[in-house]
Nucleic acid binder design. Sequence first.
DNA 1: TCTCCACCGGAATGCTTGGATG
DNA 2: CATCCAAGCATTCCGGTGGAGA
Length: 335
Amino acid sequence: MITDARVLQPEFIPTEVKHRDAELNTLSAALNPITHGDNADSAFLFGPSGVGKTCLAKFLVEQLRESVVDLNYQYVNCWEDYSRFKTLYRILDGINHTFDVHRQSTPKDVLLERLREYDGSPYIVILDEVDQLEDKQLLYELYRIRGLTMILIANSEQDLFASLDNRLNSRFQVCTRARFNPYGNDALVAILRDRVRWGLKSDVVSPDELRLIADMAAGDARAAIGILRKAVQTANQAGYNEVSSEVIRGVVPEAKAEIEQRSLDKLTDHQRVLYDTILDYGEIAPSTLFEIYSEAVENPKTQRMVRNYLTKLEHYNLIISKGSTKGRTYHPYSP
DNA sequence: TCTCCACCGGAATGCTTGGATG
DNA sequence: CATCCAAGCATTCCGGTGGAGA
């Protein structure tokens, strides 16, 4: 049934991008100076999840690499590497300048110094989910690095610019911005059809079924492909030779839950105890939380470590902390 | 308003691990 | 297979902060 499972993976980048001609041209024009050896301006991509922002950025960089031989490139997901250190580290990693710096305790800004010393070939950095970056000031410093071009990706244009100070705002005001709208159903069907053609035996999924998946995904290509993948897996395991609409309807909740579940799965047992405790109480003071946690687990970690865990839980949008210092309480996240 | 102290989070350092390398 | 090392995990120490209560 499956001939190439890779094309059903979320991180797969197709060799051609459809239905994003306008955005492609905008971004392409912004990066064009690089092909002439000039500096390109940074560019912004905005839009909800699953509309092809990351995909388009990666695709374009790949395309650029075909004509610019010595183009360096690095992809950084600021959701995962949200600290100043980690982001900088990744960026240096892309040009192999990371030797002998591997500790967070490396003196203040050696990493930035290293990057300033860089005077090699053009360097494109994709900063995905840039709104998650703690230290937005870093963007200003990166902006001033010669030869470095940033592609910045975020969900909401307003939210991102609201979190930047005036200096950054005026700098980035002139940058190219591309706004991505959710895919229409026809576009989603076309995207799915390609994936089916590349990765599955013919006649496994009928056009009507593709349309059904597109309906369920509501403009989100990542969700659509996720549903398709789950449906194919399920049908495969059950020994069917095609994907029926019953199977599709059956896996939709599962496929949607998978995305939400992913951050919970990343938690360790200890983090899970903290999360469950906060869920139980609804509102809890730090000292109480630590007491309960210490009772609940075999070898409790130190308070300091628990604070790290809580920061992580908050970062994943699983909990919220309210108030500061003495008045602080933790709550479950409510959207 | 002043003081106290619970709590936060940065820095320095050690321990563990998994993956690259010879 | 043994070795090495980058990178994550954990602990200790500590200075700063702001809410609570005198």
